[in-house]
């Protein structure tokens, strides 16, 4: 694993998040920035995908259950070669192939339409079950928000994955601590998320979600676990990489203005140097 390359890609993804949401004048930069390392890791190191054949049957699948963080997914797909990064600024515009939330019918590389919280992890379970029932070796990865874990459906899915021993499924939780209305522990405390997954029969890990080595070690461990799905709770920083957005829930669902965009890009481009 080339950590330096992944860091460069992650930075390019962050720049894409800022530029696309700025152009759209809306979107969700905070949670997109907190899951950037994970999505970068999956698309640039872990997943077996083919940008020239996005619907390739035997590809690994990724379901962005926290669908509002589409800007991170789109930027990763663009830089991975699924489409030209210059098109990221088409986000959220009329007729765009980059809808506000992931649409598998319009965006090359998007494996599942998501956006309504709690449903993506269930769809990921359906995919993993299909791989098992048809004797395929491809794997399924899904990413949830911490606030999303307040949805009851997440736990219905957790029960299903455990019951059917979906050891080809890894669910990551972007534990950045904030949801739209504030800190998750203030709004409706979903913690301890790791213990909840463990009690549902999952193999559970808690890691630093901005550390590529830690993400890789977690996935390598998960791949060795048989007969159990694996949950990786990633401690992250909401708005990571842009100083004025970090740990500020007000950046959950608003885009930068022109001045803020320049400030953010200067920071990110400085990090690239």
């Amino acid at each position: 694993m080339n950590v330096q390359l992944l860091q460069e890609k992650a930075n390019a993804v962050r720049i894409g998040i800022i530029e696309s949401t700025h152009a759209a004048k809306s979107g969700h930069p905070g949670g997109s920035l907190s899951c950037t390392e994970l999505i970068t890791y999956l698309y640039f190191h872990r997943m077996n995908v083919d940008p020239l054949n996005p619907k390739w049957e035997d590809r690994d699948r990724f379901v962005l259950s926290k669908g509002h963080c589409a800007p991170a997914l789109y930027a990763a797909l663009a830089h991975r070669g699924f489409f030209d990064p210059s098109r990221l600024t088409e986000l959220r515009k009329l007729g765009s192939f980059l809808q506000g939330h992931p649409d598998m019918k319009t965006t090359p590389g998007v494996d599942m339409s998501t956006g309504s919280l709690g449903q993506g992890i269930s769809a990921a379970c359906g995919m993993a079950m299909t791989a098992k029932a048809t004797n395929k070796n491809w794997r399924v990865y899904t990413l949830l928000g911490d606030g999303e874990c307040e949805e009851g459906q997440v736990w219905e899915a957790a029960m299903f994955a455990s019951h059917y021993k979906l050891d080809n499924l890894i669910a990551f939780v972007d534990f950045n601590g904030y949801q739209i209305d504030g800190a998750v522990t203030d709004v409706m405390n979903p913690t301890p998320i790791d213990e909840k997954f463990a009690s549902f029969g999952w193999h559970t890990l808690v890691i630093d979600g901005h550390d590529f080595e830690a993400i890789d070690a977690a996935v390598e461990e998960a791949l060795k676990i048989k007969d159990k799905p694996c949950a990786v709770i990633m401690k992250t920083v909401k708005g990571k990489g842009v100083s004025f957005m970090e740990n500020n829930y007000k950046w959950h669902g608003v885009a930068t203005n022109d001045e803020q965009k320049e400030l953010a890009l200067n920071e990110l481009k400085g990090a690239n140097a």
Binding site: Q119, S122, C125
Partner: peptide, 25 residues
């Protein structure tokens, strides 16, 4: 081998079905 009981969890069942269909079945 092609039948899956999802238990009393209809919301999950519908999204599981969607994932299966998205995977081609």
């Amino acid at each position: 081998e092609r039948f899956f009981n999802c238990g009393i969890a209809e919301g999950n069942m519908m999204s599981v079905a969607a994932g299966m269909a998205a995977a081609g079945v």
